[in-house]
Design a protein around this nucleic acid. Structure first.
Lengths: 345, 345
DNA sequence: TAGGGCCTGGACAACGTTGTCAGGCTCGGG
DNA sequence: CCCGAGCCTGACAACGTTGTCCAGGCCCTA
């Protein structure tokens, strides 16, 4: 009979268990468990023998079995919209940092802005028995989570509120940020200000739109319908919207861009435009300071959002936290030039 | 006795099991299992009763137990350096896409460029019994993975090769890309070209340096020691290095930047510099086309790296793939202006 | 109507670990 | 010298699921 080669090992690989280790070390099963978990009550000599067997066999504890027995998995789930979006990188990273500090692993998935996919992912994570969930919601009805909440799965929503369910929420002050950004343009003399944002069914988009309207109203400026574009934020569409605002009968002298993707496209359009147009964007973008002019933005602190959410999650798990709350984090206006351009009529 | 309230449910929440469902539906345990897994051999009427009980109790199958029984977890692990780095966003995303297409979840963690943390993460993932691993190595010795490979954990290294172990590797053509980028500068008349890169113990950094040297040698240009900076890539240090190269006795007329972080800092330095200096950077950066001049880069396809790696992983799991290979993906030079500036002596 | 085959449903063991508990050993004091 | 206390150690059940196997009921055919 030929010796086991790599190929068959790969295919039919079966891992050593505590039983195997115990047999090899000539001790009982439970003793191995004790050594693996650093529990007291094992002679140094016995421990050495067990450790030797562990190393020789390449034993690794099976956490699935452990979880089954203990009930806690020491892992949390993160569901976000798109890992490739630069806004979610730091958020995801800060959630991971907090998880790590609590000895938990992070399992994540992207919903791609699809409510069904969000639900599918969340339920898959619950089936894995994650201890908690950080969710950036794509859908607006989260009643499907009720049994999970009842069963004790800690849950925090981030960036957008949960729908029809009482849970922790951590948000940026989208309304205030947008209002400040638009007020900033008004303070620099603009009156005809355009707004390009996402579909209002998305909570953040709706809030930012509300901020825009509030700032205009506070300044007593009536808003023309042609100054607003609320829809998908694919580049072509944003480009068309921007061009229309800039060239219509009542052309805008400034634009407020509703998120980072919109901002980038608007910058491109403005770069081709003869007359200088002021711009303030929601969300910071990398290299914004190196452009000519620098891009003025209303910045959210993505890392703080993630950190705050994750910390609340673990406080829920501690039992320190019981009543769901809604937390709003402030935004910060960063002037870099584009928002301070005077109107050029 | 008061009814169960949310608080105690949260605290002491215990989830219904198949046994509970079976009891409520008045059927056997296995019948519930059949319904949950869509197995044949259940009357529509029985199925309805079971489904009703499932909904009423909010039952969710416990995948830990399932995994324990079945052996496969339908999840893969991804260990990378920093989720917040824009280079890893698309990579991570494309790995996730492939995983999803194969019905697997993605568990990930950041090593923060620390070999110990990498090992700790990888082993934690193995303890979870992930079916496979995609690793962007921080360390250079991966012998600790040998038992895992033997046990059948599919493994693919990305971006950097594995150390002392025979495993699949998917890389960008760092050497060729850097050589082409530097040759591009030479073709535009430069001879005094600086190189700012990461520590050569990092494989990608070493390869790019090798590419720089090769291009210079091919052109018969001797390289001055003061033209090269190989070390940490924190902004201050890069800034100092760039300033020295630009102001020394033998100042460079062009700079090749070894990665995206370096490129960004160099752009800042050059923006403050009177005399125009040509620049080619390794890795594409967002908005590179909007700067003045546009930034010429050697772009890697991060998404393709992730996709290729993940696909190989699942082919290993299929058994379609047996022999470890080393795959190099081509890079692409994107001319945008900064790399085509003529030398200004 | 009896017998055979098919279909449905359930009892039971097993996956690998941890908590409980009891047994055996050693050592010191009476 | 005996007994109790205290320390190690191991046997056993349980976690929730799935695979195996068997029993019982039904229908169809001879």
């Amino acid at each position: 009979m030929p010796q086991t080669n790599l190929r068959s090992a790969r295919r039919y690989g079966t891992r050593p268990t505590m039983k195997d280790v115990a047999a090899r070390a000539g001790v009982g099963l439970k003793t191995v468990s004790r050594v693996v978990n650093g529990e007291p009550g094992v002679t140094p000599e016995t421990e050495r023998r067990v450790q030797e067997a562990i190393d020789a066999l390449g034993f690794r504890r099976n956490d699935s079995a452990r979880v089954l027995r203990k009930g806690r998995t020491a892992s949390i789930g993160l569901v976000l919209e798109d890992l490739a979006d630069p806004f979610y990188g730091p958020l995801s990273r800060s959630v991971e940092e907090v998880a790590r500090a609590h000895g938990a692993l992070l399992i994540n998935g992207s919903s791609a802005e699809d409510p069904d996919r969000e639900q599918e992912l969340v339920l898959a994570l619950c089936a894995r028995r994650v201890d908690g969930l950080v969710v950036i919601p794509a859908g607006d009805d989260h009643r499907y989570l009720e049994p999970e909440l009842k069963a004790g799965v800690a849950t925090v929503f981030v960036d957008r509120p949960a729908g029809h369910i009482d849970a922790d929420v951590v948000l940026s002050d989208n309304f205030g940020g947008a209002r400040d950004g638009v007020a900033h343009l008004i303070a620099h003399g603009h009156r005809r200000i355009g707004f390009i944002g996402d579909m209002p069914r998305i909570h953040t988009a709706a809030e930012r739109l509300r901020g825009y309207r509030a700032a205009m109203e506070d300044a007593g400026i009536p808003v023309a319908g042609s100054w607003m574009s609320l829809g998908a934020t694919d580049p072509e569409r944003v480009r068309r919207a921007a061009e229309e605002m800039l060239s219509g009968a009542d052309p805008v002298t400034a634009v407020f861009a509703g998120n980072n993707r919109v901002t980038v496209t608007v910058i491109r359009v403005l770069a081709e435009h003869a007359r200088p147009v002021a711009l303030v964007g929601f969300d910071d973008i990398e290299l914004a300071d190196l452009l000519q002019p620098g891009v003025t933005v209303v910045a959210q602190d993505a890392a703080a959002l993630g950190r705050t959410a994750a910390e609340r999650l673990f406080r829920q798990l501690d039992g320190t936290l019981v009543t769901p709350e809604r937390i709003e984090l402030p935004t910060r206006l960063i002037s870099r030039g584009s928002g301070e351009l005077p109107p050029a009529d």
